[in-house]
Design a protein around this nucleic acid. Structure first.
Length: 275
DNA sequence: CCCCAGGTGTCAG
DNA sequence: CTGACACATGGG
């Protein structure tokens, strides 16, 4: 199927480290969307979606948040001279609306880890749990599914010392399925606290969960890359800590801080900045 | 052998 | 409160 899109950059969106289940191939990305294997590509103002089962266009539009107007964000970015280059290169990169549980789970795996390996673990988990299902559904395991497995299995899938973190989190959420809805309805501060209550989630991962899993665009995750870039561009390379950079970013960019962070992160990872 | 990767938990001071 | 240090795993 073919979906009309404006101001959208599929490749930058899927390769910018906000989601770990889409892998670049020759001219397209393959991954799993709503339980179905899909191939995604873009040609001008159209997304091409190949899937064995039909997926409603509205769900795809919502997933990629295609109806959000990014004009306000671009206006903000133009006021940041250092960020002008990434703007031109990544214009159309969007923060997508992925599943909150999957975002929470995968970003527990992200700490002190690299993107390639996080993707590998994600893939191992999808394959292992999909094989164990009766249904045709593919994709990342639910909290309930994980809660029924042993820590040993998670270690075999490559989670390392994060295995007990994810297991405990899955056990809690399968017993308290309404908890994530409470996160969604809470103010930023309270939402952060609620997410940080899980083992393996500190301030940085909490902001990732809110930004990617709950579309909280005022979240501003500060990882090593953002810290470096922010020090260089806004703190004259002084040794400010993550907490200060986090407060600065949220104060300066408000409801678009998450977008600024995403473009900055992608610029860092693709080598647009020299440090 | 070292260091690094979208950090966090723990413990001493 | 802040600052070391360890932590599974794979790659450079």
């Amino acid at each position: 199927m073919k979906i009309k899109c404006d101001d959208f950059n599929l490749k930058a969106t899927l390769d910018s480290g906000q989601i770990f289940g889409f892998h670049p191939e020759e001219g397209y990305h393959q991954g799993i969307l709503f339980g179905n294997p899909v191939e995604l590509s873009q040609e001008g103002h159209f997304i091409h979606l190949k899937s064995p089962l039909r997926i409603p266009e509205s769900r795809v539009r919502s997933f990629f948040d295609l109806d959000r107007d990014l004009t306000q964000f671009y206006r903000i970015l133009r006021c940041e001279p250092e960020l002008g280059m990434p703007l031109r290169k990544f214009q159309g990169l969007r923060l997508i609306r992925q599943d909150p549980w999957e975002a929470l789970a995968t970003f527990i795996l992200s700490s002190n880890n690299n993107v390639k390996r996080i993707q590998g673990i994600h893939k191992n988990m999808c394959e292992y749990y999909s094989r164990r299902r009766d249904s045709e559904r593919l994709g990342f395991p639910t909290a309930m599914e994980i809660s029924k497995t042993h820590e040993r299995i998670l270690r075999q899938l490559g989670l390392g010392y994060r295995a007990p973190f994810l297991l405990k989190t899955a056990q809690f959420l399968s017993n308290n399925p309404e908890y994530l809805q409470a996160v969604r309805e809470a103010e930023y501060r309270e939402a952060v606290e609620r997410v940080m209550a899980f083992p393996g989630i500190g301030p940085k991962v909490a902001d990732c969960v809110l930004l990617y899993g709950f579309n909280r665009l005022d979240a501003f995750p500060v990882d090593v890359w953002i810290l470096r870039a922010m020090r260089k561009f806004y703190f004259k390379n002084r040794k400010v800590d993550e907490k200060k950079v986090h407060a600065f970013g949220r104060q300066r960019w408000g409801g678009m801080a998450g977008y600024v962070q995403q473009y900055m992160f992608h610029a860092c990872r693709t080598g647009l900045y020299e440090f």
